[in-house]
Simulated assay, not measured.
Amino acid sequence: MDSEVLRQKLEQLTGKRTGIKQLGRQHSASLFGMGTEQEQAVIHEGYLWIPLYDNDGRITAVWVETEGLSPLELQLVDYAGRNFAVALKATGLKEEGEMEARQLSSWLNAQLEQEKDDTEIPDDITLKGRLFGDMIPFLLVSENVHNPQMTYRSLMKLLRSYFENEVLLIPLQDKEWLILARKELLTGGDDKEDEEESAEDLLSQTSMGLHELIASEWVGVFHLAVSPAIIPVKGLTGSVALLRETIILGRIFQVGDYIHLPWELHMERLVNSIPDDRRRQLLGQIGDYTAVLADKEMLLTLETFFEMDCNVSETAKKLYIHRNTLLYRLDKIKQETGADVRSFGDAAIVKLAMLLYKVTKRK
């Protein structure tokens, strides 16, 4: 059971308002006193405060409104809270701040289920105070089935070794993790970004390094998506929704790739939004490109050609083939389809056909 479940159960048990709050050092000391091995619950200004754990002098506590509660009910609430604190101490979750992360996770998942993409994080979320600055969101999704699942502690340790600045880790759904890193990881603390590299290039490079690090520690397939910096307190739900969609699109259209960038998937997003029957109809109207698109070598050639902005020399280098070999393949595609992908109009049509083929082939 995590802290949010505890709060919900206490709310159901008492019918009163409840919440979880991390107190500052001074507030913690004045409310609970310091230096004792186990702080006791206290009633203060109409609320019962039950300490759950102490993190460097900052106590995180669950509070329950006391008005109308009998002494027996208060005793039951105290008992439930203290039992949770004992179990929490045994797991060691407090050392990595997992409890606060799971509280935010419960709220985030609830907003996403209701498709609320612009909701501000409420004041009773403990981590809210750390989400006002510019942060870069990453979404990590594991496809591992048989391998041991990553733990919060082990992944957090890995992230801290990669990001020199402050980083937050939020476990979302099963095998899905949200990572929030300070924007300074791009600029090195300077407000001006590298003039020679765009923010998108830097995000791409950071993602590649992060994915490589994770892959070196855990066996299996991991997908990673990243989006530009946001102020999480207001833009977090929309950003997570975008990252989830990005990974879904990446799995469909970028088979074999594990880093997916939303600004590279605009056309894919459009194609995926077309109803299935209409996609099949469009594919039939464009023409029969099955012979080319079903050929793995030809499909890879087209994907690389479009990735290299239809540049013959750069495509040949990327594929490690002779320029004449590439020209032979492009001529073969023209013979099969009647489309010369070296011209813009035909290239656009073939690109569209390729995307339609990928998404309809999965049905």
Rank of each mutant, 00 (worst) to 15 (best):
His322Tyr: 13
Ile50Asn: 05
Val255Phe: 07
Asp309Ala: 13
Gly92Arg: 12
Glu100Leu: 01
Ser154Lys: 10
Glu113Tyr: 15
Ser273Cys: 01
Leu330Tyr: 01
Asn83Cys: 07
Arg7Lys: 13
Ile259Cys: 06
Asp118His: 13
Ile43Cys: 09
Lys9Arg: 14
Asp201Val: 02
Gln149Lys: 12
Pro228Arg: 08
Leu178Asp: 02
Phe306Ser: 04
Val42Pro: 00
Val359Cys: 09
Glu314Arg: 15
His266Ile: 14
Ile50Lys: 08
Ala215Lys: 12
Ala29Ser: 11
Gln40Leu: 07
Pro275Val: 08
Val240Lys: 09
Glu268Tyr: 09
Val5Thr: 14
Glu115Lys: 11
Phe253His: 14
Pro275Thr: 15
Leu293Pro: 01
Thr304Val: 15
Asp191Cys: 00
Leu48Cys: 08
Ser207Glu: 13
Glu197Asn: 10
Ile20Trp: 09
Tyr328Leu: 11
Gly338Asn: 11
Asp191Lys: 05
Arg278Ser: 02
Leu104Asp: 02
Leu282Ser: 03
Thr18Cys: 13
Leu330Asn: 07
Gln285Ser: 11
Arg102Ala: 03
Leu74Cys: 07
Glu264Tyr: 13
Lys128Ala: 14
Gly209Pro: 06
Leu168Ala: 12
Ile214Tyr: 01
Leu155Glu: 09
Arg342Asp: 05
Pro137Met: 06
Gln254Ser: 05
Gly209Met: 04
Ala291Thr: 13
Leu69Thr: 02
Glu115Tyr: 08
Gln8His: 09
Ser273Gly: 05
Lys358Pro: 01
Ala101Pro: 00
Glu264Trp: 02
Gly256Asn: 04
Leu155His: 09
His211Leu: 14
Asn144Thr: 14
Ile50Ser: 10
Val221Gln: 12
His27Tyr: 02
Ala339Arg: 12
Ser105Tyr: 01
Arg82Met: 09
Phe138Lys: 03
Gly133Trp: 08
Arg251Val: 04
Glu37Lys: 12
Val271Trp: 02
Glu245Cys: 03
Glu67Phe: 13
Leu213Gln: 07
Ala229Phe: 08
Asn311Trp: 06
Leu69Ile: 04
Thr360Val: 15
Glu113Lys: 11
Leu131Gln: 09
Gly133Thr: 14
Ile179Gly: 04
Trp177Asp: 05
Met298Ile: 01
Lys296Val: 06
Ile286Met: 11
Val64Arg: 05
Arg102Cys: 00
Pro262Gln: 07
Val64Thr: 15
